[in-house]
Simulated scan of single mutants.
Amino acid sequence: MSDTVTMTHPDLPDQPITVPAASTGHYQASGWQVVDEASETGSASTRRRTKKGTDG
C-alpha cells in the first residue's frame, strides 16, 4: 500500500491533492474523496473484464 493517496473535492474537480494515507479520514470529513486510480489508469484488473475464450 502506498504512503500517499490522491484525493479530489467536488467543488475543485481539476485540483487533485496528494495526502498522507493516514490523513484520509480528516480530508474525507471535509468533503474530499479518494481517487480510484485503478479505474483512471485502465489497470489490468479493468482490462481483464473482457470475454475470454472462443464461446459461440
Rank of each mutant, 00 (worst) to 15 (best):
S2T: 14
D3K: 10
T4Q: 13
V5D: 03
V5P: 04
M7N: 02
P10V: 05
D11R: 13
L12A: 12
L12R: 10
P13H: 08
P13Q: 06
P13S: 05
D14Y: 08
Q15M: 06
P16S: 02
I17D: 03
I17Y: 00
T18D: 10
T18I: 09
P20S: 08
P20G: 02
A21Q: 07
A21D: 07
A21L: 05
A22V: 10
S23R: 15
T24Y: 01
T24N: 00
G25A: 08
G25N: 05
G25F: 03
G25R: 05
H26Y: 12
H26A: 05
Y27S: 05
Q28C: 08
A29V: 03
S30K: 15
G31H: 07
W32E: 04
Q33L: 14
V34T: 04
V34C: 01
V35S: 01
D36I: 07
A38Y: 12
E40P: 03
T41S: 09
G42S: 04
G42Q: 00
S43F: 02
S43N: 09
A44R: 15
S45M: 07
S45Y: 05
R47M: 06
R48Y: 08
R49L: 09
R49V: 06
R49K: 12
T50L: 14
T50H: 13
T50K: 11
K51S: 11
K52N: 11
G53T: 04
T54C: 06
D55A: 14
D55R: 14
D55V: 10
G56R: 14
